[in-house]
Design a protein around this nucleic acid. Structure first.
Lengths: 121, 121
DNA sequence: GGTTGACTTCGAGTGCACTCCAACTGGAAG
DNA sequence: CTTCCAGTTGGAGTGCACTCGAAGTCAACC
């Protein structure tokens, strides 16, 4: 039903260090504990962590993830703000993809130039 | 004909600090100097720097850029190695774009969910 | 009941890529 | 000739996101 920090870490692809640090940094609401004081992650916790990994992977700074977590903790009245935050982030991700695609042209051009030079020389 | 470090920095969108640091780190061959010991960047230098900014922007670590610079300094016999380096990097960039596009789905899903929740509530 | 191993906390350490500071130098404008 | 500005060096400092070490606790297994 619930996972230890090690199990949760493995599920979401983060280390136990990072999971504890995310909690400390307020990216994750305080996780439930068992009688021995050990963290127990619910599937909701794991879902949340998974979402965080996607935000992180798209380059969202931890600072913004914290802001998002704070909004989420305030309940439904922040739905609009959270949507706005995601929409702004989506725009950045789209821009980033565009940038990478442009840079790919440079890469392709260079690869081609090297290939031609190799054929010559 | 040649540019000062400040002018070169502006052209390529880096700071003068970074330009000097790139040189110190071996990402750029030692730049020519004027009689007063000040750097003078040729258009070839600027082209090289521009390429570096594209590599950097696509996430190539400075370590790999240094490796690339070293190969370039060895002349034409490293053309193949340089092409291989670029091809490997291109593969990473393509993978990265794919990753971002996947993550975009998560983002879109969440935005949609927020929108629906806003309409309800 | 002892050993093992995963957990706990707190604080310090790491790696990357800059970014800046202090002290100095030299050419150009007024 | 003085003032100013952009440049020079070496080394220190910054921000981010982890990552790890030390010292201790606790449940489970033999």
């Amino acid at each position: 039903m619930t996972l230890t920090v090690g199990e949760a870490a493995e599920r979401v692809g983060l280390t136990t260090y990072t999971l504890r640090w995310y909690e400390q940094e307020g990216l994750v609401a305080p996780v439930g504990r068992d009688s021995a004081g050990r963290r127990r992650y619910t599937s909701d916790d794991v879902d949340w962590l998974f979402l965080l990994t996607r935000l992180r992977r798209t380059g969202m700074p931890v600072r913004d993830m914290r802001r998002y977590a704070e909004l989420a903790r305030l309940g439904d009245r922040t739905l609009g703000a959270r949507r706005a935050l995601f929409e702004a982030h989506r725009a950045r991700v789209l821009a980033r993809i565009g940038e990478l695609e442009e840079d790919l042209n440079v890469l392709n051009y260079k690869i081609d130039a090297y290939r031609r030079a190799e054929e010559e020389g």
